[in-house]
Amino acid sequence: MTTAIRPTSFAHVVYRTYRFEQMLGWYVKVFCGKVQYQNPVIAFVTYDGEHHRVALLNLGILKGASDAATPRGHPGVDHVAYGFASLRELLGKYAELKEKGVMPYWCVHHGITVSLYYADPDGNQMEFQADSYTSNDEANAFMYGPHFEANPIGVEFDPELMRARLEAGESEAALLLRTEHLPVSEVRGSMLG
């Protein structure tokens, strides 16, 4: 009998808000935090060495940008994130859940993490992630670099293909790095979609 794969950490929470600047100021003040990255749509705040602990989505910008506003376009929790120890464990969890009939609705390489998004029966969303970098300093450097600025959301991927590449011997380190300038992926049901 195999051991169930479990998260190693609670990683972050994402809030949707119409009070983007107020919320950003509040989380910085309350947690003695630091803004890691901010654009008009999204901001990432940390209070420790982690690349982000709180993210904020600006619903005012999102609603104004499209007639098809987010299906969950009201203020509140967008999703919570759980960290796994490695890409191998993350993809193992994907396989474990697939066998039980539970599939992610969105698979995206954010650059700082490789992430699988799931929704529970009530529609609560969660992100299962593996960090792309071995240190928070490296992840933070990526967030300040040109690839993240060009695409802070990420690039969709097929977990079956990534798992096959890993099983064929490609290194986790190679699969974890997002170095190309690819267009922002369409988001399905979370974040900006």
Rank of each mutant, 00 (worst) to 15 (best):
M1G: 13
R6Q: 12
R6W: 06
R6V: 10
T8D: 14
S9L: 05
S9R: 05
F10L: 13
F10S: 02
H12S: 05
V13Q: 07
Y15V: 10
R16A: 03
Y18L: 09
F20V: 08
Q22K: 12
M23C: 11
G25K: 08
V28R: 08
V28Q: 10
K34Q: 14
Q36Y: 00
Q38L: 04
N39V: 01
P40Q: 08
V41K: 06
V41M: 11
T46A: 03
D48V: 10
E50L: 07
H51W: 02
H51G: 02
H51E: 14
R53D: 03
V54D: 04
I61R: 02
I61H: 00
G64S: 08
A65W: 06
S66D: 08
S66A: 15
D67R: 12
D67K: 14
D67H: 12
D67I: 04
A68Q: 15
A68G: 05
A69E: 02
G73N: 13
G76A: 11
G76T: 03
V77P: 05
V77I: 15
H79D: 10
V80F: 07
V80P: 13
A81H: 05
Y82I: 04
Y82L: 09
G83A: 14
F84V: 12
S86K: 04
L87H: 10
E89Y: 11
L90A: 09
L91V: 13
G92R: 13
G92T: 05
K93N: 06
Y94K: 05
L97A: 10
E99Q: 09
K100M: 08
M103Q: 08
H109C: 09
H109L: 08
H110V: 02
I112E: 01
I112M: 02
I112D: 01
L116M: 15
P121D: 06
P121R: 10
D122Q: 07
G123W: 09
M126F: 13
M126Q: 05
E127Q: 11
E127V: 03
F128G: 02
Q129W: 01
A130V: 02
D131R: 13
S132G: 09
Y133F: 15
T134A: 11
S135A: 11
N140K: 11
A141H: 00
F142C: 03
G145V: 01
H147I: 11
F148Q: 03
I153G: 08
I153L: 12
G154I: 07
D158P: 00
D158N: 15
E160Y: 09
M162Y: 15
R163F: 05
L166V: 08
E167R: 09
E172V: 04
A173L: 11
A173Q: 14
A174V: 06
L176V: 06
L176I: 06
L177P: 00
R178M: 04
T179F: 00
T179M: 03
H181N: 10
V184N: 12
V184K: 12
S185W: 08
V187H: 15
V187F: 14
V187E: 10
R188L: 12
R188C: 02
S190M: 09
G193Q: 13
